[in-house]
Nucleic acid binder design. Structure first.
Lengths: 159, 159
DNA sequence: GGTGAAAGTGTTAATAT
DNA sequence: ATATTAACACTTTCACC
């Protein structure tokens, strides 16, 4: 895991995070105005948050429907390799259509979230990509019919 | 669903989306340089992509570990209300710690992704929030032990 | 849709407290 | 850790194509 050697975030940091989580394209000048500080001070704060990997990325959330990516699926997998970051998870993580790979408690070992155009393209990935990965004993696929909410925004406390 | 009345994206739009998905804070000027166009032309494109809801949001991805949010869980729920956007899903979507709510095929009706500090805070939400929602017959919770990959980035084609 | 020009505004590094 | 300054770069509107 990436160095999490004690990170202290004060009220100002949390405020910056809340504003940038809501709008990553906010200007430094606007951040400064909202916080009542000089722009240069904010710039320093933001750079440190990036360096410390508190801010991991700035990203535009693109509408999957606009790109005809209509299929979302969660796939539970049982695997024969032991716990920890196995080969299988790392191979799965390399597939661009795979958005999430988790190692989970319980009978199923991995939970994988995949987004594709349609069920045919999911089948194609399963046949050509998943089948290459050794140690996968079985898979159980859950198809999403409708997504009501989907965001990664965290609850950021005031203090 | 938000108006998806035929959206045509050309090569230039897709290129903009790819660059902004990778770095939402890229300047208009840099976008223009990468695409070999004038900044004013890029600005028009970007504004239209925002208007058409192709770009849904610009967000800073904040590291949950930096905020001590160590617990991630997927909860499958059976409910007695029929399919479609029910009351239950809308109530679930309002809870800030709930990052995703999907209506899924199969025996389980809903799949909910929740991020909290720890198992105690998850239990607290389940007791105080979930229990208020009528029609939930049962829940089955899967705890994430380790996340290997987690991103919402789409595969954006060249053309 | 796209460019070019111009005024306003923002960015960022250096210096100082 | 934050503020001031100042040079430079970017943003954005508008007239034109």
């Amino acid at each position: 895991m990436i160095g999490e050697t004690e990170i202290f975030l004060d009220k100002t940091d949390l405020h910056i995070l809340r504003l940038m989580q809501g709008n990553a394209r906010i200007s430094n000048a606007d951040l400064a105005r909202e916080l009542g500080m000089a722009p240069s001070g904010i710039l320093e704060r933001v750079k440190k948050l990036e360096q410390k990997n508190v801010i991991m990325q700035y990203t535009a959330r693109v509408n999957p429907i606009a790109l005809q990516q209509k299929l979302l699926a969660f796939i539970f997998m049982k695997a024969s390799d032991g716990p920890g970051s196995s080969n299988a998870t790392l191979e799965l993580a390399k597939i661009p259509e795979v958005q999430e790979v988790h190692h989970v408690a319980g009978d199923d070992c991995y939970l994988v979230k995949v987004r594709t155009y349609d069920s045919a393209s999911l089948m194609h990935i399963m046949r050509t990509q998943f089948s290459k990965i050794p140690n996968i004993l079985s898979t159980r696929t859950t198809i999403v019919l409708e997504t009501v909410k989907e965001q990664q925004q965290l609850v950021i406390p005031e203090k």
